[in-house]
């Protein structure tokens, strides 16, 4: 299980990187933390002729704040998210989610940008971005563009990222005191990819919920919002009866894939379990 032969390119600046991507983009694949890509290379399932190592580019590993948002560099490692007091304060959903990702040795190397650019439908970070209404910052030789999470994830390992672009950062609206959030996932073993997971973020005014986003992962070819269930929550206070109806709605709109190990019905059922459990937690917190 040895990686096939490939070439390696290590740009030292973002300018170098986007220029080189312009030249080689179609044959290249960006290597960030490599915690998925390296395994695929070893499997001989990734066919890039050039691995484009962005780990040497300065400036992509920082977390800084702007007035209304946190800007998280794409090379920030999961362990960096875990340790960041800014994240804990302004994006607590991420703090809660990141501990579910794999294991310490993987969290020390894996990056938030790598996870988002890969677009693994069972991964935690994409769903969190969706729940938090984050924006992806994408750079090419001509400059940068920002893509909201809603538009970024297109399908199974498919995003709007073009071969000549680098994801340089994500911009996450800062959590206000009114933010409510919850996160959980069901996995057979600690650190496994989720059989189903749910990231919730929204606003609570008193006990009334607003703009709550229910972002599921592990239940479709990409992270998905349960939009009809979300609509039922708008302006409402959580009651057992409402949670029950939201659960039914969520189950109704999830359409997970069937695979030989995990039937679709099971993932769909978990979708209901998760939303009921997490809304139950929110309800207790809001009481």
């Amino acid at each position: 299980m040895k990686a096939p032969d490939f070439a390696y390119l290590r740009p030292n600046t973002l300018e170098e990187a986007v220029a080189a991507l312009g030249r080689f983009g179609d044959d290249a694949r960006i290597l960030a933390g490599g915690q998925t890509l390296m395994a695929l290379q070893n499997f001989r399932m990734a066919s890039a002729e050039i691995l484009f190592d962005i780990n040497w580019i300065p400036g992509l590993s920082d977390i800084h704040e702007e007035p209304d948002c946190l800007v998280i560099g794409s090379l920030v490692r999961y362990a960096g998210l875990e340790a960041s007091s800014l994240i804990e304060r302004d994006a607590p959903l991420l703090s809660e989610a990141v501990g579910h990702i794999a294991h310490p040795a993987v969290r020390n190397r894996g990056t938030i940008g790598g996870s988002l650019a890969l677009g693994d439908p069972a991964a935690e970070m994409p769903a969190c971005m969706l729940a938090l209404n984050a924006e992806m910052v994408l750079c090419d030789a001509n400059g940068e563009r920002r893509v909201p999470a809603d538009e970024f994830f297109l399908g199974l390992y498919e995003t709007t990222l073009r071969p000549d672009e680098i994801l340089t950062a994500v911009r996450i609206p800062k959590a206000r005191p009114s933010q409510c959030y919850a996160f959980d996932e069901v996995a057979r073993r600690r650190g496994d990819f989720a059989l189903a997971g749910l990231a919730i973020a929204g606003k609570a005014e008193g006990s009334a919920l607003h703009s709550v986003r229910l972002a599921y992962f592990g239940v479709a070819d990409r992270p998905v919002l349960a939009v009809s269930a979300m609509a039922m929550l708008e302006g409402q206070s959580l009651t057992a009866e409402l949670i029950d109806r939201v659960r039914e709605a969520a189950i109704g709109e999830l359409d997970p894939p069937d695979d030989p190990a995990t039937p679709a019905a099971y993932r769909r059922h978990l979708g209901g379990v998760l939303v009921a459990r997490l809304l139950g937690q929110l309800r207790e917190r809001l009481l």
Binding site: A39, F43, R188, R189, R190, G191, D192, F193, D259, P260, A261
Partner: peptide, 27 residues
């Protein structure tokens, strides 16, 4: 946990350590 799964065409579906589940410390 441990079970080899084959699809209808007789192919092994879970031939990696990521999808053939062995017991780990936490559980």
């Amino acid at each position: 946990y441990e079970e080899f799964i084959y699809d209808d065409d007789g192919y092994l579906c879970n031939g990696t350590l990521a999808d053939y589940l062995v017991p780990m410390a936490a559980e």
